[in-house]
Amino acid sequence: MKKENKIMVAVSADPEERKALVCRLAIEHGFARTPSDAAKILIQNIYDIDLAGTFFVICDNYNFRGGVITTQRLYELAAKGICVIIGSRSIPREYQFICSAFYPSDFSRL
């Protein structure tokens, strides 16, 4: 899978399904070999990550409405080529152009 310089967002209302999607994306981008390995590097809260010095971001519970500055920082990281994979319930319309959305149906064919 080729990485675009966008925020990769696993979109699902179900938290367990969202976590599985984020883990699947982490595996496809080479950060883990199995879902259990991916779950080990998964961060539950985006504010637990030092965004200034991180090499990748993998978080399964992000709210775009929670912090505009944090969303801007995530996009800056993605634009620089750093892998940003997050899970969210939805993507607001104003952020869709900076995101690549992945839904459960995208992975059902794999």
Score class of each variant (00 low, 15 high):
Leu21Ile: 13
Glu28Leu: 12
Leu110Thr: 05
Pro92Thr: 07
Ser100Pro: 00
Phe97His: 12
Pro15Thr: 05
Asp50Glu: 14
Lys80Arg: 15
Ile43Leu: 06
Ser100Asn: 14
Ile82Val: 15
Tyr95Pro: 02
Arg18Phe: 01
Tyr62Arg: 01
Asp50Gln: 13
Asn61His: 12
Thr54Tyr: 09
Met8Ala: 06
Leu42Pro: 04
Ala52Trp: 01
Leu25Trp: 11
Thr71Ser: 13
Ile7Trp: 05
Asn5Lys: 15
Leu25Lys: 10
His29Tyr: 15
Arg109Pro: 00
Gly87Tyr: 06
Arg65Trp: 04
Ile91Phe: 05
Val22Arg: 04
Lys2Ser: 05
Arg89Pro: 00
Leu77Glu: 05
Ser88His: 04
Ala13Ile: 08
Phe64Asp: 01
Thr71Glu: 04
Ser100Thr: 13
Tyr95Lys: 07
Ala101Lys: 15
Asn45Cys: 10
Ala79Phe: 02
Cys59Thr: 06
Phe31Glu: 08
Ile46Cys: 09
Pro15Ile: 08
Cys23Glu: 13
Asp48Trp: 07
Ile82Met: 11
His29Phe: 15
Leu21His: 01
Phe31Cys: 10
Phe55Arg: 15
Arg24Cys: 02
Ala79Pro: 00
Asn5Gly: 01
Ala39Leu: 08
Thr70Trp: 00
Ile46Gly: 06
Pro104Ile: 09
Gly67Ala: 11
Ala79His: 10
Phe107Arg: 06
Phe107Gln: 05
Val68Lys: 14
Pro15Glu: 04
Ile27Asp: 05
Lys19Val: 02
Ile41Cys: 07
Ile46Trp: 07
Pro104Tyr: 05
Pro35Tyr: 02
Lys3Asp: 03
Asn61Leu: 01
Ser88Glu: 04
Pro15Phe: 05
Asn45Pro: 06
Asp48Met: 11
Asn61Phe: 02
Ile58His: 02
